[in-house]
């Protein structure tokens, strides 16, 4: 008998970390194997399901950072530590942390797009000896939109961290500018062998990869994580298909040599 992959299982909320009014991280019990950049279908019966990427992996729990944007996520936000949510997954390929070992790595992220790659950053923040050099460029719209402040405070000593906002009030201590502004200024030993990960909205991915190529990165060393509408997460519903590729099955993490061919 085929397993009913649509049937969700219960996971207990261990903690809720509030970043902004609209963005919380839910720490949920999960015992199985999981990689950063994979995603779960989080659901509340009678409200619906939402695909949420894994943003942190801990012993016996996973962190899912959720942006409150609709019916399902609204309802999820009404849940507190001790409550339970339904999950299916994890689905998708996720990031292969091993492939970045002993290399220079640049991670460029925009807004909540940072979630899928946060696990990668965290891994190398804990294992600094595994990486030759790590640069993290994270952009948010305004200072009020900044997520993971505590992380950045810890990480700033373990990597080169550039936290930037698109706009800020005058006199603010934040760097103002687009993430792409910082790419030409990167100080790398060798851009040709450096790896880059880009996550964020489609337009941001487009311009960031252009800037990386211009800075000397090789196409096959650039990785992106894509977001599309997903209903099933398992290659059936069709919404996330782009050309011959199912983002949910073959992605969401793609090498740039593949993703550049994914014309919606």
């Amino acid at each position: 008998m085929t397993h009913n992959e649509y049937k969700p299982f219960l996971a207990e909320i261990k903690d809720v970390i509030k970043h902004t009014d609209k963005e919380y991280t839910f720490r949920l019990t999960y015992e199985g194997a999981v990689k950063p950049g994979q995603f779960f279908e989080v659901s509340i019966p009678k409200y619906g399901e939402a695909p949420i990427s894994v943003c942190g992996i801990n012993d016996g729990t996973v962190d899912l950072t959720i942006r409150r944007v609709g019916k399902v996520t609204n309802e999820i936000f009404a849940h507190r530590a001790g409550d339970r949510l339904f999950l299916r997954g994890p689905y998708g390929n996720g990031f292969d942390v091993g492939s970045y070992k002993n290399k220079e790595l640049v991670i460029v992220a925009g807004g909540t797009g940072f979630s899928p790659v946060r696990g990668v950053v965290e891994y190398f923040a804990r294992h600094t000896q595994d990486i030759k050099g790590l640069t993290l460029i994270v952009g948010f719209k305004t200072p009020a939109d900044i997520l993971f402040r505590e992380d950045f405070a810890v990480w700033k000593d373990k990597m080169q961290l550039i936290l930037t906002v698109d706009q800020a009030e005058e006199g603010s201590s934040y760097q103002v500018g687009l993430v792409t502004d910082y790419i030409p200024k990167l100080s790398l030993k060798n851009a040709e062998t450096a790896e880059a990960i880009v996550v964020g909205p489609p337009v941001m991915i487009h311009f960031t990869t252009l800037a990386l190529l211009k800075a000397g990165f090789r196409e096959e060393n650039i990785w992106v994580s894509m977001e599309r509408k997903m209903c099933c997460g398992i290659g059936k519903c069709g919404h996330c298909k782009v050309n011959d590729t199912y983002i949910c099955l073959d992605g969401p993490v793609f090498n740039f040599t593949k993703s550049r061919e994914l014309i919606d």
Partner: peptide, 27 residues
């Protein structure tokens, strides 16, 4: 063509019960 969209609902006459269904979708 086999695409579908998921829908969760509460029954209007009894909000405590409901269902999850999938309906045909069109690109």
């Amino acid at each position: 063509c086999t695409c579908f969209t998921m829908q969760d609902i509460f029954y209007t006459d009894n909000g405590k019960v409901g269902e999850r269904r999938r309906v045909a979708a069109s690109c």
